[in-house]
Design a protein around this nucleic acid. Structure first.
Length: 737
RNA sequence: GGACUUGUAGCUCAGUUGGUUAGAGCGUUGCAUUCACAUUGCAAAGGUCAGAGGUUCGACUCCUCUCAAGUCCACCA
C-alpha cells in the first residue's frame, strides 16, 4: 500500500471494473428506483451537476442495504435552450434561422446535438455515478415521441387542449412566446408621458401603442370622470380625429397618473383581460417581428423603440403632450434568455386547461402521498399550484416535437400565413392562397416551410385534426409548425423511462431529486401527467437541493469570473474529495458552497481513510507470540470501541433514512478520524504492533464497517481500501450494511 | 401586496423533538514528529448564538415584534 492515497491512479480503473462487472444493476431485493433528471443532451458538466451526487449516495446506500437499486439516466433535447445556443453558432457565420427551412434547421441542430452529446456521461462517470448507462433515454427517442403524442391526443379528445388567441409574452429577438415562468421582471426608470386625449389627460409609458387603443378606462367610483362613463369621446390623434368609448373598470388605480388609462387589448396583458370583460375590439398594431404594422400609417415598419421616439416627437409638435415624468420607476418584463423587453402579443397558441388537472395534484400533496424534503417546499409548490393558470404548450421553434395537428389547406387557405424557402432558395412570406395562386405547388411550400401562423377569427372556422401522420383522405393538409414546450415532454419523464413490466414493480419510483428552482416547471407537471395518464403518483419522495455557489455564497457566473469547473477539481484532488465537499457541512435545500480549500480538506480525509487502513493492514501478520502486558486495559478499550461504534451506526442509519446525508457524513467523519484514529488506534497501537490479535481484529472489523458507511459518499477510496483487505476481485458493492 | 428562508468563531456553515463547559472545515498562534498518515498529531486564541420582549425550573432551539439579507408568487397603465 502506498503511503498516500492516489485517486488519479485508482479511480478510473475502479470505475471501469464496476462497469465491466455490471455492478450498476442488481436484481435481488426490494426495488429502489431513481430517475435521473435529464441534463441537456449537448451540455458539459458544470458545478450544479455535482449535486447529482445526492442521487448516487442514495443509490449506493440502498444497494448496501440490500435493495435492488436502479438509477436510470437520460438526456433532454432542451428545445429553446439548445436552439438558442445553435443560433448563436449560426450568427457567428453570419447566418440565421431564416436562411433554412425548418426541416434543414432541425436536421442541423440534431447533428449539432449528436456531436456534442455523450460528453456529460463520461464526466458523470468520472464523478463515480453508478447509473445504468445502457438504459439511457433521450427525450426525442421513438418511444418517448409515441408517449408524448399519445398524451396530447388523449388530452385533446377529452377536451383539455384548446387553441386560442392569447396574449403571450413574445420575444421578438428569439422569435418565440414564453411562459410566465420564463420571464424576468426588472425595475427600470422610463419616461412616463402625460398625453392629451380628448377631454382627458392620461399617463402611459407606451405612447406608440395608442394606435391600438380601443377604449379608455376610469374607475367606476371616480367622481372626476363619472359623467363620461359609457359615452364616446372625440380624440385628436396623430392619424387624425377618432372616436373612442369610455369604460369603467375596477382595475384602474385612481391614484395613478390622472386616473385615466388607455386600453390596448392587443398589446398589454391587463388590457387584454379588460377587453374581454367589456367585449372590446382587439386591434393589433405590432407584428411579431417587433415592428409596427400598416394600421399605424407613417409609423409602419418602425421597430417599437424607434416608433416610440417618433411618436413622442410628433405628439410634441402637435402639442399633445402635457408633461413627461422622467423619473418614473416601474417593473418591466424581459426575456430570461436575452434580457430584451418582451412584447405582449396576441398569437394563436395551444393551451392545456389546468383547472381540473391540477386538483388531484394538490390533493396528493396535501395528503402527503408525495413528501417533500426539506418540508418547506410542500408549501411552496402548493402556493404555486393555486395560482397556476392555463399552460401554453406551443413554442415557435423547430427544435422539439412538432405538434401533431393538421390544417385543411382549402378551408383555411386565406388564413394561413407562412414563411418558406422555395426551390430557388428565395425567402417567401405571405398567405398560402397567395403562393398557390402564384403557381407554387403545396409540396414545394411544405418542403421549404419555416413557420406558419393560423389565426383564429372564430374558433369554428379553423379546420384542424389531431393526427400523428398526414391524413390520407385525398385532401390537402399541412402540419402545425409549432413544437411542444420542452416541459411538456420532460414532464412525462416518469412515463417513458421504465420498461413496461417495471411499472408493476418500480412505479411509483422512490425518490425524485432535483434542483429546487424547477419545482414548478418540472416536478408539478410530472405529478400532473402521471396522475392523468397512469392514475398514480410518479414518485414517493421529492428531495430538493439548491444552487452550487462559490465560497463566498455568490452565484457562479462567467461575468463574475468565479465559475469553478468540477473536472479540474476532480483531476487535482479526486472525485471523492469533490463529492464529499458538496455534502459535508451543507444543509438540504440551501445553497451549496464549493471552494477549493474545502475540497482539499476532504482530500485529506480520503487520505486519512486510506492510512487508517494501511496501519491496520501492515500489522496483519505481526508477531503474535509476544506477551501483552496491559491486556486488561486493552480489552476495556475494545469494549468501549465496540459500544461506541454501535451507537454511531445506529445514528448513521437514522440520518441516512431521513435524507440527512450531511449529518450522516459529518458523524462518520468525526468518529473515524477523531475517535477511531486519534483515540482508539493510539490507545491500542502498542498492542496491535506487538501482536494483540483481538485488538487488531476488532479494529479491522470496525474499519471495514465504516468503509461501507462511507462508501455512498466517497466510493473510490472505500472500494480501494476494501480490496486491500478482501482481495482484488472483491467489491464493497457486493456487501451488506 | 402575499408567502418562504436566513442572520451562530476571521470566512463558509452544522447544531435531530428546549437540558451541564455552543461545534466542524478553512484560516490564525504555539509545540511535537525517524512511529499508518506533515494531505499528521497535541494544544491555544476567537462567539453577550442579529436585537427586544415572552413561555419555561431551564431557550441557539418554542412564540411575538423590530432590524438586516435573500428567494418565490402576484401587481405595477
Amino acid at each position: 500500500m502506498e503511503p498516500k492515497y492516489n485517486p488519479l491512479q485508482l479511480e478510473e480503473k475502479l470505475y471501469q471494473e464496476w462497469e465491466k462487472k455490471s455492478l450498476s444493476s442488481v436484481n435481488k431485493g426490494t426495488p429502489f428506483t431513481i430517475l435521473m433528471p435529464p441534463p441537456n443532451a449537448n451540455a458539459s458538466l458544470h458545478a450544479g451537476h455535482g449535486m447529482y451526487t445526492m442521487e448516487d449516495i442514495m443509490i449506493r446506500y440502498k444497494r448496501l442495504r440490500g435493495f435492488a437499486s436502479l438509477w436510470i439516466p437520460g438526456t433532454d433535447h432542451a428545445g429553446f435552450e439548445t436552439q438558442f445556443v445553435y443560433e448563436k453558432h449560426l450568427s457567428k457565420k453570419d447566418k440565421s434561422r431564416f436562411d433554412f427551412s425548418r426541416q434543414d434547421l432541425y436536421n442541423d441542430i440534431h447533428q449539432f446535438v449528436k456531436d456534442n452529446s455523450g460528453l456529460i456521461y463520461s464526466q458523470f462517470k468520472r464523478l463515480g455515478f453508478l447509473a445504468d448507462w445502457k438504459r439511457s433515454v433521450f427525450t426525442l427517442d421513438e418511444h418517448v415521441l409515441k408517449t408524448v403524442l399519445e398524451t396530447f391526443t388523449k388530452m385533446e379528445k377529452e377536451g383539455y387542449i384548446y387553441k386560442d388567441e392569447y396574449i403571450v409574452n413574445y420575444c421578438t429577438h428569439d422569435g418565440t412566446s414564453l411562459s410566465e415562468l420564463e420571464t424576468v421582471h426588472v425595475e427600470r426608470k422610463d419616461p412616463l408621458y402625460y398625453l392629451k386625449y380628448g377631454p382627458f389627460i392620461l399617463a402611459t409609458v407606451r405612447p406608440e401603442t395608442k394606435f391600438g387603443d380601443t377604449a379608455v378606462a376610469v374607475h367606476p367610483k371616480d367622481k372626476r370622470y363619472k359623467k363620461w362613463i359609457g359615452k364616446e369621446i372625440e380624440v385628436e390623434g396623430l392619424l387624425g380625429k377618432f372616436k373612442i368609448k369610455v369604460i369603467a373598470d375596477e382595475m384602474v388605480d385612481m391614484k395613478f397618473g390622472t386616473g385615466v388609462v388607455k386600453i390596448t387589448p392587443a398589446h398589454d396583458p391587463n388590457d387584454f383581460e379588460a377587453g374581454k370583460r367589456h367585449g372590446l375590439e382587439v386591434k393589433k398594431i405590432i407584428n411579431i417581428d417587433g415592428r409596427l404594422n400598416e394600421l399605424t400609417g407613417p409609423y409602419a415598419g418602425l421597430k417599437v423603440k424607434q416608433a416610440r421616439e417618433k411618436v413622442v416627437e410628433d405628439l410634441k409638435k402637435k402639442g399633445l403632450i402635457e408633461k413627461i415624468d422622467e423619473n418614473y420607476i416601474h417593473s418591466v418584463t424581459v426575456c430570461y434568455k436575452c434580457g430584451r423587453d418582451l412584447e405582449p402579443t396576441i398569437i394563436p397558441n395551444w393551451f392545456i386547461k389546468v383547472k381540473e388537472l391540477k386538483k388531484p395534484v394538490i390533493d396528493v400533496i396535501n395528503k402527503e402521498k408525495i413528501k417533500f424534503f426539506p418540508k418547506r417546499f410542500k408549501k411552496q409548490i402548493l402556493q404555486w399550484l393555486e395560482v397556476m393558470h392555463d399552460w401554453p404548450i406551443s413554442r415557435q421553434i423547430v427544435w422539439g416535437i412538432r405538434i401533431p395537428v393538421w390544417y385543411l389547406v382549402n378551408d383555411n387557405e386565406n388564413k394561413i400565413w407562412l414563411s418558406f424557402i422555395d426551390r430557388k432558395g428565395q425567402f417567401k412570406k405571405g398567405t398560402i392562397s397567395q403562393y398557390l395562386g402564384e403557381g407554387y405547388q403545396l409540396d414545394e411550400i411544405k418542403e421549404g416551410l419555416q413557420q406558419m401562423t393560423v389565426p383564429i377569427y372564430k374558433k369554428e372556422s379553423v379546420k384542424y385534426i389531431v393526427s400523428v401522420n398526414e391524413p390520407k383522405d385525398g385532401q390537402n393538409w399541412i402540419q402545425e409548425t409549432d413544437t411542444f414546450d420542452t416541459w411538456f415532454s420532460s414532464g412525462q419523464w416518469p412515463l417513458v423511462t421504465l420498461k413496461k413490466e417495471e411499472y408493476k414493480t418500480r412505479f411509483p419510483t422512490d425518490v425524485m431529486g432535483t434542483l429546487s428552482d424547477i419545482l414548478p416547471f418540472w416536478v408539478s407537471r410530472m405529478i400532473m401527467f402521471s396522475l392523468y395518464v397512469k392514475k398514480e403518483i410518479p414518485f414517493k419522495d421529492v428531495y430538493l437541493w439548491s444552487k452550487v455557489v462559490d465560497s463566498k455564497g455568490q452565484k457562479m457566473s462567467k461575468s463574475k469570473g468565479n465559475v469553478i469547473n468540477p473536472i479540474d477539481l476532480v483531476n487535482k484532488y479526486g472525485a471523492d474529495a469533490f463529492r464529499a465537499s458538496l455534502i459535508f457541512g451543507t444543509s438540504p435545500g440551501g445553497n451549496v458552497p464549493l471552494a477549493e480549500e474545502k475540497v482539499i480538506g476532504m482530500r485529506n480525509f480520503t487520505n486519512k481513510i486510506w492510512n487508517i487502513g494501511r496501519f491496520i493492514f501492515m500489522n496483519k501478520n505481526s508477531n503474535d507470540k509476544i506477551q501483552m502486558t496491559n491486556q486488561a486495559q486493552n480489552s476495556k478499550t475494545l469494549n468501549d470501541l465496540t459500544k461506541e461504534f454501535k451507537e454511531e451506526k445506529k445514528k448513521y442509519l437514522k440520518s441516512m433514512d431521513g435524507y440527512r446525508f450531511s449529518q450522516a457524513l459529518g458523524m462518520v467523519y468525526e468518529f473515524i478520524w477523531h475517535r477511531f484514529a486519534d483515540y482508539y488506534i493510539e490507545q491500542l497501537k502498542d498492542g496491535v504492533i506487538n501482536g494483540n490479535i483481538e485488538a487488531r481484529k476488532t479494529l479491522e472489523a470496525v474499519y471495514l464497517e465504516n468503509l461501507k458507511m462511507l462508501h455512498p459518499f466517497i466510493p473510490f477510496v472505500t472500494e480501494a481500501g476494501w480490496k486491500v483487505f478482501k482481495g482484488k476481485d472483491s467489491s464493497i458493492l457486493n456487501e451488506k450494511l
